[in-house]
Design a protein around this nucleic acid. Structure first.
Lengths: 132, 132
DNA sequence: ATAAGGGTTCCAGCAACTGGAAGGTCAAGG
DNA sequence: CCTTGACCTTCCAGTTGCTGGAACCCTTAT
């Protein structure tokens, strides 16, 4: 399989696949002409990576998850640990974004959005946050 | 005011303030010795930027908001437009993260987290998503 | 004289790609 | 046989918003 096929079948851009090779996540063989030659196994790895990235895992997490995936002697505790940490981070991010959104949607709601210059959004950004 | 004072009073790291000068968000004057000399006005701008960044606005949005803030002929519609776009993006991010979290928390919940190798998390990452 | 605690510049690096340039390879069509 | 087009290759630069560090200057106190 050439990179284009793998890209189509894994859903990852060819650029990304090359990048993953660069950083050592996959090691496709090479044809005599220099083209990357992917086996089913490589495709499977890339699909794994695509799904892990889709769940928001960092590249380093992905690397570790992949190692565990291929390590028969792993424990599910190791995997769960990584996932739990990531879950905590996601929750933190959501909480953070929600706070932004709440503040911001209040401001947007209060803004007339007409052609006058008065704007509660700018007023709020321009002054100390009194309520906290 | 030197940069340290402004950092303390604005809550922004000195590095960040220098960076903001680099990209043209503030233009402090200079003392004869080469030190940046901030006026109250500059501090005010930086505080504005800090709050806008705190709401998650991109630097470019911040730049535009700052221009509008200082432009007497602005319309609140222009401001609201920027804020509304940003709000939409935040909502999209939250939705995205929530989906990740839902999937991930299911997986974490199903994982024993013991010293056996069987792990639904890895199994899920290793196989086609059947539902959906 | 020197030491501490400011300040300055510039360069590199983070994450995870993405775009683009310059060029090699291959199969099909005229 | 040559060309065209669609592949593939490498390498370099840019993205976002800083952050760390090196090497150096300025000021004040001891």
């Amino acid at each position: 399989m050439n990179i284009g096929d793998v890209a189509a079948r894994s859903g990852l851009p060819a650029k990304t696949i090359r990048y993953y090779e660069d950083i050592g996540l996959v090691r496709p063989q090479r044809d005599p002409n220099g083209y990357r030659a992917f086996r089913e196994q490589d495709l499977h790895k890339l699909a794994f990576l695509g799904r892990a990235r889709g769940l928001g895992f960092s590249i380093e997490d992905c690397r570790n998850l992949l190692h565990l995936y291929e390590d028969e002697t792993r424990t599910s505790a190791e995997v769960k640990d990584i996932a739990q940490h990531h879950l905590d981070e996601i929750d933190a991010k959501i909480a953070n974004l929600r706070e932004m959104r709440d503040t911001l949607s209040d401001l947007v709601r209060c803004c007339a959005g007409d052609d006058r210059p008065d704007c509660p959004i700018l007023e709020s950004l321009g002054s100390e946050p009194e309520t906290k």
